[in-house]
């Protein structure tokens, strides 16, 4: 049987951009409208029957979600990653996209996962419902605007330790100088612990100490 080169099949889709990354990886970029057609084509005409994964990426700055469909062909021994972008939507008008469940059964799992983690509704997917986060009522947590670090700081209490050695150091005028959460919550680590930061921290400590003294008197 004459094999049709994969590019020829892919090029049937309007506006497609094909990037051959290496022998077993092809990246294609298509419009959201053309993506189901593309998947149908490569499944039906080029044996790409194994849906390896669907990934959602939140490009918050572009106000878009990127959906990536990784499809493998056992015969071609090649993986096509089909990228498309959809509107990110808003709280009142969540993002929607069409399900590929009728083409690939495993889409059930991936689409449900994306629905739960990113809030994208896939029309035609059999189970648009909660799965992992059954007791979660907040925003979909994988969204870039959900700050997990802040959530943790607000929700959980760090253990406070008071070992003897720390007491000794504190008595000598030392003790805790830079807490790990100070470094982490700053987000950008490269600005920390320089002398200004430390001076500020020291000044704050001195002030706090003065306040304490005031209380004692």
């Amino acid at each position: 049987m004459n094999k049709v080169p994969i590019d020829e099949i892919l090029n049937k889709v309007n506006g497609i951009k094909i990037t051959h990354k290496r022998k077993t990886r092809i990246r294609v970029d298509v419009d959201a409208d053309s993506l189901p057609t593309l998947l149908e084509l490569i499944k039906g005409r080029a044996s790409y029957i194994h849906l390896s994964a669907i990934t959602c990426v939140d490009w918050i700055a572009d106000n878009q979600f990127e959906l990536v469909y990784h499809v493998w062909s056992y015969e071609e021994k090649c993986l096509i990653s089909a990228h498309t972008r959809i509107d990110r939507g808003s709280e009142s008008n969540p993002a929607k996209y069409v399900s590929v469940y009728d083409l690939f059964k495993p889409a059930d799992f991936f689409e449900r996962d994306i629905f739960e983690m990113y809030g994208v509704t896939f029309i035609g997917s059999p189970r648009m419902e909660k799965f992992i986060l059954t007791e979660w009522n907040g925003v979909p947590p994988m969204l870039k605007d959900f700050d997990a670090e802040a959530y943790v700081q607000e929700t959980f209490k760090w253990t406070d330790y008071n070992p003897d050695w720390l007491q000794e150091l504190t008595d000598q005028g030392g003790g805790i100088a830079v807490k790990p959460e100070d470094i982490r919550t700053a987000g950008n680590t490269h600005n920390m612990s320089t002398h200004r930061e430390r001076d500020k921290a020291k000044a704050a400590a001195v002030k706090a100490n003065e306040k304490m003294q005031g209380w004692k008197q």
Partner: peptide, 13 residues
């Protein structure tokens, strides 16, 4: 430290 396990303490001595 990926788990925020390290606190820097000041040792005056």
């Amino acid at each position: 430290c990926d788990n925020a396990a390290i606190t820097m303490v000041e040792v005056p001595s």
